[in-house]
Simulated assay, not measured.
Amino acid sequence: MDAGRAMSDESIFREVDEAIRQDQLKVLLRKYGLLVLGGAVAIVAGVGGYKFWNYWTAQQASDAGGRFVGAVTLLRDGKNAEAIEVFKSLADEGPSGYRRLARFRLAAVYAKDGKIAEAINIYDKLAADSGLDKIQQGFAVIQAATLRLDDAPFDEMNKRLKALAVTGNPWRHSARELLGLSAYRAGNRAVAERYFNVMLGDQQTPANMRRRAEMMLSLLVQSTGAPAPAGN
Protein backbone atom coordinates (compact mmCIF):
# COMPACT_ATOMS: atom_id res chain seq x y z
CA MET A 1 0.00 0.00 0.00
CA ASP A 2 1.49 3.33 -1.06
CA ALA A 3 1.70 6.36 1.19
CA GLY A 4 -1.14 8.17 -0.58
CA ARG A 5 -3.48 5.23 -0.13
CA ALA A 6 -2.53 4.91 3.55
CA MET A 7 -3.22 8.58 4.18
CA SER A 8 -6.56 8.26 2.39
CA ASP A 9 -7.55 5.28 4.51
CA GLU A 10 -6.55 7.11 7.69
CA SER A 11 -8.65 10.08 6.63
CA ILE A 12 -11.63 7.85 5.97
CA PHE A 13 -11.20 6.13 9.33
CA ARG A 14 -11.06 9.49 11.06
CA GLU A 15 -14.20 10.63 9.26
CA VAL A 16 -16.01 7.39 10.11
CA ASP A 17 -14.85 7.66 13.71
CA GLU A 18 -16.02 11.25 13.87
CA ALA A 19 -19.36 10.29 12.33
CA ILE A 20 -19.80 7.53 14.88
CA ARG A 21 -18.99 9.96 17.66
CA GLN A 22 -21.51 12.42 16.26
CA ASP A 23 -24.13 9.69 16.01
CA GLN A 24 -23.44 8.70 19.59
CA LEU A 25 -23.76 12.32 20.61
CA LYS A 26 -27.10 12.54 18.80
CA VAL A 27 -28.28 9.42 20.61
CA LEU A 28 -27.17 10.86 23.93
CA LEU A 29 -28.89 14.13 23.18
CA ARG A 30 -32.08 12.33 22.16
CA LYS A 31 -31.94 10.20 25.30
CA TYR A 32 -30.79 12.80 27.82
CA GLY A 33 -31.45 16.08 26.06
CA LEU A 34 -34.42 17.05 28.23
CA LEU A 35 -32.52 16.15 31.36
CA VAL A 36 -29.53 18.21 30.28
CA LEU A 37 -31.80 21.08 29.37
CA GLY A 38 -33.71 20.65 32.60
CA GLY A 39 -30.47 20.68 34.54
CA ALA A 40 -29.39 23.86 32.84
CA VAL A 41 -32.75 25.46 33.57
CA ALA A 42 -32.53 24.27 37.17
CA ILE A 43 -29.09 25.85 37.52
CA VAL A 44 -30.33 29.11 36.05
CA ALA A 45 -33.44 28.96 38.22
CA GLY A 46 -31.27 28.20 41.24
CA VAL A 47 -29.06 31.20 40.58
CA GLY A 48 -32.10 33.34 39.89
CA GLY A 49 -33.86 32.02 42.98
CA TYR A 50 -30.81 32.74 45.11
CA LYS A 51 -30.63 36.28 43.79
CA PHE A 52 -34.35 36.72 44.33
CA TRP A 53 -34.06 35.35 47.88
CA ASN A 54 -31.24 37.77 48.62
CA TYR A 55 -33.29 40.63 47.20
CA TRP A 56 -36.41 39.56 49.09
CA THR A 57 -34.63 39.17 52.43
CA ALA A 58 -32.84 42.49 51.94
CA GLN A 59 -36.16 44.13 51.12
CA GLN A 60 -37.79 42.55 54.17
CA ALA A 61 -34.93 43.70 56.37
CA SER A 62 -35.17 47.19 54.91
CA ASP A 63 -38.91 47.33 55.55
CA ALA A 64 -38.46 45.94 59.07
CA GLY A 65 -35.69 48.45 59.74
CA GLY A 66 -37.96 51.29 58.71
CA ARG A 67 -40.73 50.03 60.96
CA PHE A 68 -38.32 49.58 63.86
CA VAL A 69 -36.97 53.12 63.53
CA GLY A 70 -40.54 54.36 63.26
CA ALA A 71 -41.44 52.61 66.52
CA VAL A 72 -38.43 54.14 68.26
CA THR A 73 -39.60 57.55 67.04
CA LEU A 74 -43.05 56.84 68.46
CA LEU A 75 -41.44 56.09 71.82
CA ARG A 76 -39.53 59.34 71.69
CA ASP A 77 -42.80 61.14 71.02
CA GLY A 78 -44.43 59.48 74.01
CA LYS A 79 -46.68 57.24 71.92
CA ASN A 80 -45.81 54.07 73.78
CA ALA A 81 -48.99 52.16 72.97
CA GLU A 82 -48.48 52.63 69.23
CA ALA A 83 -44.80 51.74 69.49
CA ILE A 84 -45.64 48.58 71.41
CA GLU A 85 -47.95 47.42 68.63
CA VAL A 86 -45.19 47.86 66.05
CA PHE A 87 -42.65 46.05 68.22
CA LYS A 88 -45.14 43.23 68.79
CA SER A 89 -45.70 42.87 65.07
CA LEU A 90 -41.96 42.79 64.37
CA ALA A 91 -41.40 40.34 67.22
CA ASP A 92 -43.96 37.98 65.68
CA GLU A 93 -43.41 38.42 61.95
CA GLY A 94 -40.20 40.34 61.25
CA PRO A 95 -36.91 38.94 59.92
CA SER A 96 -35.06 36.96 62.59
CA GLY A 97 -32.67 39.75 63.56
CA TYR A 98 -35.41 42.33 63.91
CA ARG A 99 -37.67 39.83 65.71
CA ARG A 100 -35.13 39.52 68.49
CA LEU A 101 -34.28 43.21 68.49
CA ALA A 102 -37.98 44.06 68.75
CA ARG A 103 -38.39 41.64 71.66
CA PHE A 104 -35.53 43.30 73.53
CA ARG A 105 -37.04 46.72 72.93
CA LEU A 106 -40.54 45.53 73.81
CA ALA A 107 -39.30 44.13 77.12
CA ALA A 108 -37.58 47.45 77.89
CA VAL A 109 -40.79 49.38 77.16
CA TYR A 110 -42.82 47.03 79.36
CA ALA A 111 -40.31 47.47 82.18
CA LYS A 112 -40.44 51.25 81.88
CA ASP A 113 -44.25 51.14 81.89
CA GLY A 114 -44.25 49.06 85.07
CA LYS A 115 -45.32 45.83 83.36
CA ILE A 116 -42.57 43.92 85.11
CA ALA A 117 -43.97 40.41 84.73
CA GLU A 118 -44.37 40.87 80.97
CA ALA A 119 -40.84 42.25 80.66
CA ILE A 120 -39.29 39.42 82.68
CA ASN A 121 -41.18 36.85 80.62
CA ILE A 122 -39.69 38.23 77.40
CA TYR A 123 -36.18 38.49 78.84
CA ASP A 124 -36.33 34.92 80.14
CA LYS A 125 -37.32 33.67 76.68
CA LEU A 126 -34.51 35.66 75.09
CA ALA A 127 -32.05 34.24 77.62
CA ALA A 128 -33.08 30.74 76.50
CA ASP A 129 -32.99 31.58 72.78
CA SER A 130 -30.23 29.46 71.23
CA GLY A 131 -30.27 31.73 68.19
CA LEU A 132 -28.69 34.49 70.27
CA ASP A 133 -25.01 34.58 71.12
CA LYS A 134 -23.76 34.31 74.69
CA ILE A 135 -23.39 38.06 75.13
CA GLN A 136 -26.98 38.71 74.04
CA GLN A 137 -28.28 35.87 76.19
CA GLY A 138 -26.29 37.21 79.13
CA PHE A 139 -27.74 40.67 78.63
CA ALA A 140 -31.25 39.19 78.80
CA VAL A 141 -30.34 37.33 82.01
CA ILE A 142 -28.99 40.52 83.61
CA GLN A 143 -32.08 42.52 82.64
CA ALA A 144 -34.47 39.91 84.04
CA ALA A 145 -32.45 39.59 87.25
CA THR A 146 -32.36 43.36 87.69
CA LEU A 147 -36.15 43.45 87.49
CA ARG A 148 -36.39 40.59 90.01
CA LEU A 149 -33.92 42.08 92.50
CA ASP A 150 -36.50 43.67 94.80
CA ASP A 151 -38.67 40.57 95.13
CA ALA A 152 -36.70 37.42 94.36
CA PRO A 153 -35.09 35.35 97.12
CA PHE A 154 -31.32 35.03 96.96
CA ASP A 155 -31.53 31.40 95.82
CA GLU A 156 -33.42 32.45 92.70
CA MET A 157 -30.97 35.25 91.97
CA ASN A 158 -28.06 32.90 92.49
CA LYS A 159 -29.59 30.41 90.06
CA ARG A 160 -30.04 33.13 87.46
CA LEU A 161 -26.65 34.78 87.81
CA LYS A 162 -24.07 32.36 89.18
CA ALA A 163 -22.92 31.21 85.73
CA LEU A 164 -22.32 34.82 84.68
CA ALA A 165 -20.37 35.80 87.80
CA VAL A 166 -17.31 33.73 86.92
CA THR A 167 -13.94 35.16 85.89
CA GLY A 168 -13.78 36.00 82.22
CA ASN A 169 -17.50 36.32 81.62
CA PRO A 170 -18.26 39.75 80.08
CA TRP A 171 -21.31 40.12 82.35
CA ARG A 172 -19.50 39.15 85.57
CA HIS A 173 -19.40 42.68 86.98
CA SER A 174 -23.17 43.17 86.74
CA ALA A 175 -23.84 39.62 87.95
CA ARG A 176 -21.58 40.05 90.99
CA GLU A 177 -23.14 43.37 91.90
CA LEU A 178 -26.66 41.98 91.66
CA LEU A 179 -25.70 38.92 93.71
CA GLY A 180 -24.07 41.13 96.34
CA LEU A 181 -27.14 43.34 96.55
CA SER A 182 -29.46 40.34 96.70
CA ALA A 183 -27.41 38.78 99.49
CA TYR A 184 -27.45 42.10 101.35
CA ARG A 185 -31.23 42.30 101.06
CA ALA A 186 -31.51 38.72 102.31
CA GLY A 187 -29.36 39.54 105.35
CA ASN A 188 -26.56 37.27 104.13
CA ARG A 189 -23.77 39.64 105.02
CA ALA A 190 -20.86 37.27 104.43
CA VAL A 191 -21.93 36.47 100.87
CA ALA A 192 -22.64 40.13 100.15
CA GLU A 193 -19.16 41.14 101.33
CA ARG A 194 -17.57 38.35 99.33
CA TYR A 195 -19.12 39.53 96.07
CA PHE A 196 -18.32 43.19 96.70
CA ASN A 197 -14.73 42.30 97.58
CA VAL A 198 -14.44 40.20 94.42
CA MET A 199 -15.58 43.25 92.47
CA LEU A 200 -12.86 45.36 94.07
CA GLY A 201 -10.27 42.68 93.38
CA ASP A 202 -11.09 42.56 89.68
CA GLN A 203 -9.01 45.21 87.92
CA GLN A 204 -11.52 45.34 85.08
CA THR A 205 -14.50 46.25 87.25
CA PRO A 206 -15.89 49.54 85.85
CA ALA A 207 -15.21 52.59 88.00
CA ASN A 208 -18.86 53.31 88.76
CA MET A 209 -19.45 49.72 89.91
CA ARG A 210 -16.26 49.81 91.97
CA ARG A 211 -17.50 52.92 93.77
CA ARG A 212 -20.83 51.26 94.52
CA ALA A 213 -19.06 48.15 95.84
CA GLU A 214 -16.93 50.32 98.14
CA MET A 215 -20.06 52.11 99.33
CA MET A 216 -21.83 48.82 100.08
CA LEU A 217 -18.82 47.46 101.97
CA SER A 218 -18.65 50.67 103.99
CA LEU A 219 -22.34 50.35 104.75
CA LEU A 220 -21.89 46.75 105.86
CA VAL A 221 -19.01 47.67 108.16
CA GLN A 222 -20.92 50.60 109.66
CA SER A 223 -23.93 48.43 110.35
CA THR A 224 -21.95 45.85 112.34
CA GLY A 225 -18.70 47.53 113.28
CA ALA A 226 -16.40 44.93 111.70
CA PRO A 227 -15.96 43.03 108.45
CA ALA A 228 -17.75 39.72 108.27
CA PRO A 229 -15.79 36.47 107.99
CA ALA A 230 -15.56 34.94 104.52
CA GLY A 231 -18.61 32.90 103.62
CA ASN A 232 -20.29 31.08 100.73
Rank of each mutant, 00 (worst) to 15 (best):
A3S: 02
R5W: 04
M7R: 11
S8G: 13
S8D: 15
E15C: 05
R21N: 12
D23S: 15
D23Q: 11
L25H: 05
L25W: 10
L29G: 02
L29E: 02
V36P: 01
V41T: 02
V44P: 00
G46M: 02
W53H: 08
Q60A: 04
A71Y: 06
A81W: 00
V86Y: 04
K88P: 06
S89I: 08
S89E: 15
L90P: 00
A91N: 02
G94A: 08
G94C: 08
P95H: 01
F104K: 00
R105K: 15
V109T: 13
D113A: 15
I116F: 06
I122Q: 00
Q136V: 03
G138R: 02
F139N: 10
A140G: 08
Q143I: 03
T146P: 13
T146K: 10
L149W: 05
D151I: 04
P153Y: 08
D155P: 09
D155K: 14
N158A: 15
R160G: 10
L164H: 00
E177R: 08
E177F: 06
G180D: 09
L181P: 07
A183W: 02
Y184A: 13
A186P: 07
V191D: 09
V198W: 03
D202T: 13
P206N: 10
E214P: 12
S218A: 15
T224L: 13
A226L: 09
P227A: 04
P229S: 01
P229F: 01
G231M: 02
N232D: 15
